[in-house]
């Protein structure tokens, strides 16, 4: 007996045929006589598709759109409760931080700026975020959430300054790359990522 999966495969294959003329229908009905009625019904629908699809001009009324949209959103990935609390740098202090910078092939000073959220979050290229998430064992989403939080430059570092400590404005990732000392090939690679990111 034919399994439901086989049946679907046969009907899909029939639907995918370039033409649905007598020869095609005969071929399928001969091979799968138990599906004859369904093949004929499908042939009729495909005839209608060929004639009518796209024939209606303008938008078609979709009264259930809002409910459907809510269902669609509800079915999607939800930010986990712990996402906001995830600090991707938590496990990377001291030597581990240097190793992480090496793994990502970026200078430690650049990674420090990222850690301290001194970079405009939207300017960080997706490629860098993805590599960073992989290297730190977190997710792209968690990294984006981390970057979007208020910058937390450790004020203690500026405590001995002559001026009152204050948070500096954020710089773009491109500015950071351009103004950080690093190898030329590293810089070119990161700038290319910036360029691709800015195009999107």
């Amino acid at each position: 007996m034919m399994t439901p999966i086989d049946k679907d495969a046969v009907l899909d294959a029939f639907a995918a045929e370039p033409v649905h003329d007598r020869n095609t229908l005969e071929r399928y009905v001969s091979e799968y006589p138990e599906l004859a009625e369904e093949l004929i019904d499908l042939a009729a629908e495909l005839r209608l598709s060929a004639e009518f699809t796209g024939a209606e001009e303008g938008a078609i009324s979709d009264p259930k759109l809002e409910t459907a949209w809510e269902n669609f959103l509800a079915a999607g990935p939800k930010p986990s409760v712990t996402t906001a609390a995830v600090d991707p740098f938590a496990r990377f202090k001291g030597g581990a931080f240097a190793t992480l910078a090496g793994k990502l092939d970026v200078p430690r000073s650049l990674l420090t700026a990222v850690r301290d959220r001194l970079v405009v979050p939207s300017s960080v290229p997706s490629g860098f975020v993805r590599r960073f998430a992989e290297a730190t064992g977190t997710t792209v989403e968690a990294v984006r959430v981390y970057l979007a939080q208020d910058s937390q430059a450790p004020l203690g570092l500026a405590f001995k300054s002559d001026q009152k400590p204050s948070q500096q404005g954020r710089v773009t990732f491109r500015q950071l790359v351009e103004n950080t000392e690093m190898g030329e090939s590293q810089r070119l690679f990161l700038l290319r990522e910036c360029e691709e990111h800015e195009l999107t």
């Binding site: 009907l11 899909d12 639907a15 995918a16 369904e38 019904d41 499908l42 629908e45 598709s49």
Partner: peptide, 18 residues
């Protein structure tokens, strides 16, 4: 399947619905 042949996929759904 719909990503390969969208209208044929919808025709399949239509056939079942009818």
């Amino acid at each position: 399947f719909f990503e390969c042949r969208f209208n044929a996929g919808v025709a399949r759904l239509r056939s079942t619905a009818r």
